[in-house]
């Protein structure tokens, strides 16, 4: 396993799509980002940092 070439980023970033198929995973990822964003907003409002903090 040690002779696997180490990626050089960001030039090799695109290779992620040789492993992860966006046709399958793009939408689940975007929904996960949405859930995280809602969770963060929920906490921020819950701790009282809402509109009129």
């Amino acid at each position: 396993m040690s002779d696997v070439a180490k990626p050089k980023n960001p030039e090799d970033d695109w290779k992620i799509w040789l492993v992860v198929n966006p046709a399958t995973w793009l939408m689940p990822w975007l929904f996960a980002v949405l859930v995280i964003a809602i969770a963060v907003h929920w906490v921020v409002f819950a701790v009282g940092l809402g509109w009129h903090a």
Binding site: W14, I16, W17, L18, V20, N21, P22
Partner: peptide, 18 residues
Amino acid sequence: QSLSGLTEQQAKEFHEQF
């Protein structure tokens, strides 16, 4: 074939939009 099934050209093309 890649693990994802995408060709190098498709992967690079998608990455540009991403």
